[in-house]
Write a protein that binds this DNA or RNA. Structure first.
Length: 284
DNA sequence: GTGACCACCTGGCCGC
DNA sequence: TGCGGCCAGGTGGTCA
């Protein structure tokens, strides 16, 4: 599933292919993909707009157009393909954007979870979903004090809370496991038991993991490849995620898989422990 | 404010 | 071989 590194990889590829192009029209083959505004308004408003800039915010791809912002969330399996107007449409290509030069950008999503939103320039980042997002992983405002405050009222497992996009935007299930492994924290540990020092470790390891993944083009696992079928290479660097019954690269213990908050979670019981004492106090 | 649960979806896998 | 059931999981909505 695309997380921040995969979203950045896709955005960079989009930049190479469609930056500066003018949208001729958009054809929608699965109405629910358009989250906002109405289908007819979406089609009407987006026509003739130019792609000015492409960036990301959390797991959203943000395309600045002439008059609006087009937000795209890939969710589980969304990906883009580039085709010509005469190429036949695939079964799972639900949105086809045709540019004036004849190129088509097609949104492929087998599970139909992806979302498109067209927001005006006054409110695009002042209303949900973007207004609800927390800091980016590399934002200078993401400090251990901020994270500590965000976690202190949460009793849910740290694994679950790190997936909350209103705290740190962009962390998904795969990198969550990796970050907690590098931070030596059990995914089951209550978020409000995470110490200030561990908050710093989480921040440092989030940067380390996401920067490495971005450099390698993201992670390609069962359900995700980036556009054009390009495969990321970070899956070769994964330490615990997807490694059930394999040996921990640090201690040699067997990596186990459990469910935390309904998510498949991989961790090493020996390396990852609750950093709290017998009284439940946070250790320095 | 917080947490639990559910819906959205389809392909792959497994057991029968 | 075919069928049914389960699993995968990011996000938003509802309810307690």
């Amino acid at each position: 599933m695309p997380e921040k590194p995969e979203v950045i990889t896709v955005a960079k590829t989009l930049e190479r292919h469609i930056l500066g192009k003018t949208i001729e029209k958009v054809d929608i083959y699965w109405d629910n993909i358009i989250e906002y505004p109405s289908l007819s308004e979406f089609k009407k408003r987006i026509s003739r707009q130019i792609i000015k800039k492409i960036s990301t915010r959390g797991k959203w791809i943000v395309m600045e157009l002439s008059n609006d912002y087009l937000l795209v969330h890939l969710r589980m399996e969304g990906k883009f393909f580039y085709r010509g107007i005469n190429d036949s449409r695939g079964k799972h290509e639900h949105v086809v954007i045709t540019f004036t030069d004849g190129l088509q950008l097609r949104f492929h999503d087998t599970r139909k979870f992806g979302k498109f939103r067209l927001m005006n320039k006054e409110e695009w980042n002042k209303v949900p979903p973007l207004s609800l997002l927390g800091y980016e992983y590399n934002d200078k405002n993401l400090t251990k004090e901020y994270l500590y405050q965000a976690l202190k009222s949460r009793k849910l497992p740290i694994k679950t809370v790190l997936l909350d996009q209103s705290i740190i935007a962009g962390i998904g299930n795969i990198y969550d496991d990796e970050i907690l492994f590098l931070s030596h924290l059990s995914p089951l540990m209550s978020a409000n038991k995470v110490s200030l020092d561990s908050c710093q470790e989480i921040i440092d390891n989030t940067k380390k993991v996401l920067d490495s993944a971005i450099a390698l083009g993201g992670t390609t696992i069962r359900s995700y490849t980036s556009d054009e079928g390009v495969h990321g290479k970070f899956q070769q660097m994964l330490l615990v995620h997807g490694k059930e019954n394999e040996l921990c690269p640090v201690c040699g213990n067997t990596i186990i898989k459990i469910k935390v908050g309904g998510r498949g979670t991989y961790y090493c019981k020996k390396c990852q422990k609750d950093k709290i004492n017998s009284k439940g106090e946070r250790l320095k």
